[in-house]
């Protein structure tokens, strides 16, 4: 999120460059890749729809979760084909992982993290957090200058997704690879076993699905046209304050 754009746009100060190009590019790349990864991942899961904790787990061991196969409407390909699901998944995964790595580095070095996502003094005070939750629940979105900054809930979810959930799903994915286990033995130790890693991978995928659903809902509620434009061209129209509306 930046200040006003150029001289021409200074003249219409309500339009700002909200998202820089790395954010926009990464966003749409993720939309595509996470879709492929989620649906092909369900296709792979269908080959053995049981989850275990620990180092091992097969049909005669106790699963903590056992599901029916996911339907063809949500798997890639849209019929059971483990080899093709794996081709899709393992093609998308490295692109996704390296894009994430570059975005994390850019956020750190380009000060996106420090400027836009880091919590400000006092933001984490219980009273402030509670106020943000109440505003959010009542769908009272910030207007004017305040709309240029993320609130506490947004910051927490973006930091949680970029620096926790996404790295977690990459690392647990790598942990399932026997080759990577030989290359980086610390991976299996970190997650307490290959089957634990598989379980965490699955749970994280559904946590990201939950994030996605809330994300879409918030975009729809906050004004999809303006929000989607800000993620394509970067231009974001600052919502008028109530005082301005009255003028």
């Amino acid at each position: 999120m930046d200040g006003p754009l150029s001289d021409r746009e200074q003249a219409t100060p309500r339009l700002v460059l909200r998202h820089k190009w790395p954010t926009r590019l990464w966003h749409w790349l993720n939309a595509l890749l996470l879709y492929v990864l989620f649906t092909s991942g369900l296709g792979i899961f269908n080959a053995h729809p049981r989850l275990y904790w620990g180092q091992y787990g097969a049909n005669f061991d106790h699963p903590w979760l056992e599901l029916e196969r996911f339907g063809r409407w949500i798997t890639l390909p849209a019929h059971y084909n483990l080899a093709m699901s794996r081709h899709w998944h393992l093609t998308a995964a490295p692109i996704f992982a390296f894009a994430l790595l570059f975005y994390m580095l850019w956020s750190l070095l380009g000060r996106h993290l420090a400027r836009d996502l880091a919590f400000r003094r006092g933001e984490l005070a219980p009273g402030h957090v509670w106020q943000d939750i109440r505003d959010h629940a009542r769908l009272r979105f910030p207007t004017g200058e305040a709309a240029l900054h993320y609130n506490v809930l947004q910051k927490a979810s973006y930091i949680g997704v970029i620096f926790l959930a996404l790295p977690l799903i990459v690392l647990t994915g790598l942990t399932m690879s026997p080759g990577m286990n030989a290359a980086w033995p610390w991976l299996v130790e970190l997650f307490g076993g290959r089957q634990s890693a598989r379980s965490i991978h699955f749970i994280t995928a559904f946590a990201l699905l939950a994030f996605f659903l809330v994300h879409i809902l918030m975009v729809l509620l906050a004004g999809p046209g303006n929000e989607i434009r800000s993620m394509i061209s970067g231009r974001y129209r600052i919502p008028e304050t109530h005082a301005e509306k009255g003028r």
Binding site: H48, A58, N59, R86
Partner: peptide, 12 residues
């Protein structure tokens, strides 16, 4: 050693 099936299960 751990035997990892392409289907997702493992046995030691």
């Amino acid at each position: 050693t751990r035997h990892d099936c392409v289907e997702g299960w493992s046995a030691i």
